[in-house]
Design a protein around this nucleic acid. Sequence first.
DNA 1: TTTTGATTTTGGTCTAGACCAGAATAGCAC
DNA 2: GTGCTATTCTGGTCTAGACCAAAATCAAAA
Lengths: 239, 239
Amino acid sequence: MQYITIKEGVASLIDRGELTANKKLPTERALAEQFQTTRVTLREALTTLEAEGKIHREDRRGWFVSPPSMIYDPTSTNNFNVMASKCGFVPSSKLIQAKQVGASQEVAELLNVPVDTQVYRIDRLRMLDDRPVVVTFNYVIMENFPGLLEHDIESSLTDVYRDQYQKPYAKTHFQIKTSSLLGETAQLLRASTGSPAMLVQRVNYCAEGVLLDCDIEFWRPHAIKIESTASVITTTKNN
Amino acid sequence: MQYITIKEGVASLIDRGELTANKKLPTERALAEQFQTTRVTLREALTTLEAEGKIHREDRRGWFVSPPSMIYDPTSTNNFNVMASKCGFVPSSKLIQAKQVGASQEVAELLNVPVDTQVYRIDRLRMLDDRPVVVTFNYVIMENFPGLLEHDIESSLTDVYRDQYQKPYAKTHFQIKTSSLLGETAQLLRASTGSPAMLVQRVNYCAEGVLLDCDIEFWRPHAIKIESTASVITTTKNN
DNA sequence: TTTTGATTTTGGTCTAGACCAGAATAGCAC
DNA sequence: GTGCTATTCTGGTCTAGACCAAAATCAAAA
């Protein structure tokens, strides 16, 4: 379990302040030499630290000390910009593409419509202090929001729903699980293929229970801490 | 990117039904030979599949196809047993230890008490269909629940709070992030050291807002899917 | 049949390299 | 100083092994 020792060694470099947030770790070869091991073993140690959110990789760029993560409340109506600002980050967004497509199996299930129903698909990359942290895929039933793509959809869809269509967002159903980053999603996040991810899938409704959209979010795990408070009304008998 | 091909190859074995839930994959050496590669590369492929929740490892036992995961609603008052039953699993619990300790830094912060405040610490392992899926560490302020350890705390603490102390659980604050499994926690879950984990931290309150306990839960990622519905009342202006 | 002890298999971990393509850098021309 | 290009560096990926301890299996004894 040499790699556990190495892991702790690197962790203590961070805790002792020799490496600070967003700073690049020494090269793998240098670290391997420093800890008298091979790159394979070193990477095992770094991968474990990555799983704990202490460090992360940028594809072909190296390992970096992770800065504090953004607190993400899935039960709140606050959009990305608000949540980011509350945590002291400067948020920004980049529209990757927006187009009309037929709903895939996965999307059709989330939206509870037949496969191939016409929907708008909106892909965006979102950043905190210019660090890419999440890629989001929104799917909106075309019929409900005619001409949606003509509005400014880069920064906040919920603002457009509220201001342009008088449909404020008020209810959400969400799922969270772990996943991995592949292909273009990984590239946009400057992540290596196969890096771990937090997958958040949501279905959003407005006050009348009318469906707004669904979205699929691939987060860099180190960049997000999910946190919420819930008061529960329902009481269920125990088995 | 040979390992991506291998990953897809193994995934298709599962999708085609050649490997079914809970079944053990062939040995690493056999798979490496089948895909004409080395164990190192093969493990890279399997690790990625693990991150996606399709397979998981049991320490020194091998790789297994993951069964459907349990839906965990952090906002519900349902306890583990109820949630498990709802998903068609047979839940069981094992008390690892229960003792009185002084609150650590981490626990003190969660409970909002000074470090070293006397608390009960209750460690449990919980299973679905006899598969260990989560290790929970509960911390309860002693003063609030005198004699707690004399009750049956193996299966459900919330039941004891409600039935023995007339303090039903009604509100929760939760945090979710990724982590890794180490030491005894890993062993209890039959996981290898350094395996990925979902870390859920909760602070629970009863209806009057009185603090009940906090708990720290290390989940096998493949075993859990976090899911909830939230209707939001607060509306926050956009930045 | 059950228990126990011996043997084999297997995963966990590690070594010591290698090649390649993209990123970073240094150097040169404008 | 700016832009471009050649070179170097570095991470991504892979090979072909090795040793060990735990798990699984098998065989013998009770």
